[in-house]
Nucleic acid binder design. Sequence first.
DNA 1: TACCCCATAGACCATGTGGTCTAAATCTTT
DNA 2: AAAGATTTAGACCACATGGTCTATGGGGTA
Lengths: 236, 236
Amino acid sequence: MRREFKKKSNVLLIDDNYEHLVGIRELLNLEGTFDVVGIATNVTVGLNLIKKYQPDIVLLDMNMPDRDGLQGIIEIGKLGLDTKVLALSGYDDADLIFRAMKIGAKGYVLKTMASAQLIYAIEEVLSGKIYLPIALSSRFFEYFQQSFREESSKQDSDEENLLSYLTQREEEVLELLTQGVTYKGVASKLFISETTVKTHVNNIFQKLQVNDRTQAVLYAINNGFLTKKGVSALAR
Amino acid sequence: MRREFKKKSNVLLIDDNYEHLVGIRELLNLEGTFDVVGIATNVTVGLNLIKKYQPDIVLLDMNMPDRDGLQGIIEIGKLGLDTKVLALSGYDDADLIFRAMKIGAKGYVLKTMASAQLIYAIEEVLSGKIYLPIALSSRFFEYFQQSFREESSKQDSDEENLLSYLTQREEEVLELLTQGVTYKGVASKLFISETTVKTHVNNIFQKLQVNDRTQAVLYAINNGFLTKKGVSALAR
DNA sequence: TACCCCATAGACCATGTGGTCTAAATCTTT
DNA sequence: AAAGATTTAGACCACATGGTCTATGGGGTA
């Protein structure tokens, strides 16, 4: 697992705290397997250095004043290089961890962590893996599941969800509405007359307590009408 | 970290492979800190046992014939108990891992893993944490990031996204359309005449290559019009 | 059997919506 | 200054949409 025979990996550091920046550079230089090809105290400068040196990995501080660290990840990603981003932060903020991972960070480490763990994280990321310390990955998953719980609790709560009052046929009609189909279109697809479709649609409006098709479609989308099909397809 | 002085934890096993079921039961009994309060070879029976014994944790096989393991997680969740679910599977299928975690599994372990690791996983989950073996968590994150990359690449690819051709004003109008507002409503909210709104709307249709407001709203939703505001709020 | 729900469908009408054309005022860019 | 884009707005028309009422036949239930 050692990499002493491999070519040194190019690392770039971005952190608005200069002390910290130099500290990490020293640490990595001592390690001997890394080449710190550049350091920057803000994202703008950092981006230019990345374009110039195309490092293997960037250690990017999340908590910076001018441009946000998250934005930094996005912009590095936009460069289209295969530079990997390891997010650095002083705080184990679940939301921040989640967002960073979501937009493509390959890892997230706390500044308070032991230097050995930082080295390990860098090596893992360099080898193509994704690295999250166990403590952070726990926080991540809690947040992750939470966000889906909120989503599905809105959808599931049968007492609140007006969609559950729809009949089979009305659901079929509504599904077509959510695809932007007109009365005529629905009529021909379901092999019924246009006036029948109108009747169904009007009943749908009553049940969903809306006044027009756009609002009906929006209600359906916001209340999990479409995902329900996903779930039943999932349950196949 | 030992739990020998704590009350034994109640465990329930669901797996269609009876051999395996018994094997795990023996393993857990030998360990001494667990009480296997029930075993079941299918989800339906398992659910009844869960209702009866309210175990602390359920080890649930993902790959079962009759009712799907994923569906099982959902239904256990619906019981409203604080029974935790540890997913068991023979395969490290990224999609399966992702879905299981998404719908609330507290962990996911492979059947091929060492028994010590299974014990550890159970203990971690029982202590309120979420446990994913490193190898699986890597797969999970790859899948996770992939799904967002697909989402945002559709949104970002400026050459394909017709939304980028909209003017400022047209975007404002479209935003109101995505809220189900009528011509009159838009007119009064933007302090312009109704005919002006119509002009804007018609231009929007042209640019988005659609024929009516519903389709325009659907296009907007499917192409990240709404999330753009989220992203810019995120970049603040 | 009587009752209710559901899917079907017609009639009628008011209004909302979409298509097209024209045009003026403002602002940007060359 | 000229050209172009944006925002504003009117007129006219065809048709889609939504509201309401009525009605029939099938299926299930008390």
